[in-house]
Design a binder for these strands. Sequence first.
DNA 1: TTGGTAATGGAAACCATTATCAATAAGGAG
DNA 2: CTCCTTATTGATAATGGTTTCCATTACCAA
Lengths: 157, 157
Amino acid sequence: MPHGNGMGPRWWHRRFRGCGYRMTVPRQAILDVLSKTSRHLSAEDVFMAVHKVYHHVGLTTVYRTLELLVQMGLVSKFDFGDGRARYELLEGSKDSGHHHHLICTKCGRIIDYTDFIDEEIKLLKETEKGLSKKYKFKITNHLIQFYGLCDKCKDKR
Amino acid sequence: MPHGNGMGPRWWHRRFRGCGYRMTVPRQAILDVLSKTSRHLSAEDVFMAVHKVYHHVGLTTVYRTLELLVQMGLVSKFDFGDGRARYELLEGSKDSGHHHHLICTKCGRIIDYTDFIDEEIKLLKETEKGLSKKYKFKITNHLIQFYGLCDKCKDKR
DNA sequence: TTGGTAATGGAAACCATTATCAATAAGGAG
DNA sequence: CTCCTTATTGATAATGGTTTCCATTACCAA
Ligand SMILES: [Mn+2]
Ligand SMILES: [Mn+2]
Ligand SMILES: [Zn+2]
Ligand SMILES: [Zn+2]
């Protein structure tokens, strides 16, 4: 499900320059790949996709760039328990684009959902307030994942 | 914070035998270590603790046993993002003992909390209901972690 | 166009976890 | 208690995702 939000090469370029980074061919290519999928790609997935177009881009650069993008807040990094990190371009600036995951423990399918985010955010606020008071802990982020069986795996066997 | 709930060597022995497994010295030792701490130990942590008493127990066995305990439902396995799995004995049988985590992104401190579990469970139920309907997804488990700064790290710098 | 330096990529290192396999020992039968 | 079956163990090697190294390349401000 390729998206066509307002972001693109020009925007990224500005963003990079604004942070004092250079916009390079590998970085551009990696962002292109990420922006053209709604799947949760591993570093190697990204590498293979980029490699089809730019044979010279190395896996090391993919790792480095993904880490940079995460650090810049453009990309989220997840661990779904399959032994490799998975990356996903954050759409929209700031908090829009934030979502949670349903993970099928049988086939590994990942489902993004945003439907109930509002209620979860409310819970988050309350929890944050309570925990801040009790543990003097300043919450800056959260991770919520549900595990179970997807429709395809639920029935058979 | 060593706990003294109703479980112990005898109980574990029955549990193992009930599953058709043998109760061995390494397994006993690993359970002892896990039951005497409230920290979230890595496999190597467990190995080192066990090694002090039983020099002959190998790291491989620690990994194998921890995996077995997870699979038996006696131990939870977590990923706090530091590149190694962390294990924790589940106290109480069944769902009691279930809790969530506050993770300090600066010093790595982990705080268990159960205070707001009830509200989260309520949210979970609602979410589960909604998601089941919309995505035909059967939720069996969930992971909720809050990231931020602990009281010690919040202030300085 | 050029120079300073950030960025790159191939290879090697790293490191948590897993696979191998011969030796060991738990525990049921007798 | 002893024997026997076989689950379990542990030293070692292998695996595989991620990082580190470092000489080379190429952004981009001047
Ligand atoms: Mn997602
Ligand atoms: Mn815990
Ligand atoms: Zn599935
Ligand atoms: Zn801290």
